[in-house]
């Protein structure tokens, strides 16, 4: 019985650590490197603040009044938000000068410039289902899905390159 209790403790600890590790690294770090993801951190704080403000009424369970709780935009998200200006989550030195990361895919009209993998950008698999997109030696983002379907590079009319990430 004592042995079983100890084993339960061990596996609980391991299970919790896996959850915490994945959550922490999703929020705080980019590409599994040690650079802190400022936008992810800001997003985490914002989500906690939003959750703290939600008017949950657990005692009366009167959820009809709690419309805020059902607003989809207030749900916490694991995807770090990226601003279109270069003061975003990624250190400025990592972003090529003529490249922008698109925060809202719908704002940009896609053109027929979807590159094939290995042609315009080098895509490396970091771990199962995690890809890193690199140009030269610079790594500037990763996608969490199959690389073929979720990455597009778009060249705008003024020559600006936009890296388009299609999250789902």
């Amino acid at each position: 019985m004592i042995k079983m209790k100890k084993n339960i403790k061990i596996f609980t600890a391991i299970f919790i650590s896996i959850l915490v590790t994945v959550l922490l690294s999703n929020y705080l770090f980019l590409n599994g490197t040690t650079s802190i993801n400022q936008a992810g951190l800001a997003n985490l704080v914002k989500n906690i603040q939003t959750l703290a403000k939600l008017p949950f009424n657990w005692l009366t369970r009167n959820n009809k009044k709690n419309e805020l709780a059902h607003t989809p935009s207030l749900r916490p998200t694991l995807i770090p938000t990226i601003n279109q200006d270069q003061s975003s989550s990624i250190a400025p030195s990592l972003i090529p000068t003529n490249t922008y990361l698109s925060p809202i895919p719908s704002l940009i009209t896609p053109v027929n410039a979807t590159p094939t993998i290995g042609q315009d950008a080098k895509i490396t698999q970091i771990a199962h289902g995690v890809y890193s997109i690199q140009q030269g030696n610079v790594t500037f983002f990763r996608v969490n899905k199959s690389a073929n379907a979720y990455y597009k590079e778009i060249t705008l009319t003024n020559g600006t390159k936009v890296l388009f990430f299609n999250y789902e």
Partner: peptide
């Protein structure tokens, strides 16, 4: 877990556990 996680996550997992 090293099949799936990157180095930093492995260190985090180990230390947190």
């Amino acid at each position: 877990l090293s099949f799936y996680l990157v180095e930093l996550q492995l260190v985090l997992f180990f230390v947190i556990t």
